[in-house]
């Protein structure tokens, strides 16, 4: 259950954002669509607890995250939210597998089987001991999805996951994300300007 009400945000009192309320039930996915500069990334950061809203409420799985302090927010995020960024980020000194182990360590969940299950399901099990900068673009995107879901989050947030992809790959990636989300019992919120994704979601909001 994800519910937001009257979220407002501004950058130094200069750029003001007001976001429409969001409400999705368990097992529902959501597409948030909007043009550049409208505050898509800001909304994603607010939902992920990376930014603090100036007013309004954000309730994730029964918890009002604006009431959490910085440390609690970090812990909450580690346990419940996985983020797929527009560009893949990794800890470059570590291999794919070590990145996933680090994510598990941070969330205090050690489970080697899960790492293998995820890598297998994403088709990159053979890359697990590769350094992340040895991966191809497609493999990187899969690895970053693995990183987002390794700790069994209840919510996966994806920021423009398809914007730079051709139609074929766009289809492939969004299907992969949805498949992973349902396979591992997570809800998916995709924030994008990419209209091609509309057909993949029953529920969408326009900013």
């Amino acid at each position: 259950m994800i519910k937001t009400r009257d979220i407002k945000f501004d950058y130094d009192n200069q750029v003001f954002f007001e976001f429409p309320d969001i409400e999705i039930k368990n097992r529902e996915n959501l597409l948030i669509i909007g043009n550049s500069g409208i505050g898509k990334t800001t909304l994603l950061h607010l939902l992920a607890g990376l930014l603090e809203s100036k007013s309004g409420s954000i309730e994730l799985f029964g918890k009002e995250i604006s009431n959490l302090n910085s440390y609690q927010l970090d812990t909450f995020r580690g346990e419940n939210i996985g983020i797929v960024f527009q560009r893949s980020h990794f800890v470059n000194s570590l291999t794919v597998k070590e990145n996933l182990e680090l994510a598990q360590f941070i969330a205090n969940k050690k489970d080697n089987n899960r790492i293998n299950t995820i890598l297998k399901s994403l088709g990159i099990l053979d890359k697990s001991d590769k350094n992340t900068n040895q991966l191809s673009q497609g493999e990187k995107q899969r690895a970053s999805i693995a990183l987002a879901i390794v700790n069994s989050p209840k919510l996966i947030l994806a920021d423009e996951p398809t914007s730079s992809l051709d139609d074929e790959n766009c289809d492939r990636v969004i299907k992969l994300l949805k498949k992973q989300a349902s396979e591992f019992n997570a809800q998916l919120i995709v924030i994008t300007h990419d209209n091609r994704l509309k057909k993949h979601f029953k529920k969408s909001i326009k900013l």
Partner: peptide, 17 residues
């Protein structure tokens, strides 16, 4: 390594970690 740091934070690491 600022992106790395940000990534580690989004994975749930605290500032002090």
């Amino acid at each position: 390594r600022k992106y790395e740091m940000a990534l580690i934070r989004t994975l749930g690491a605290s500032r002090s970690q």
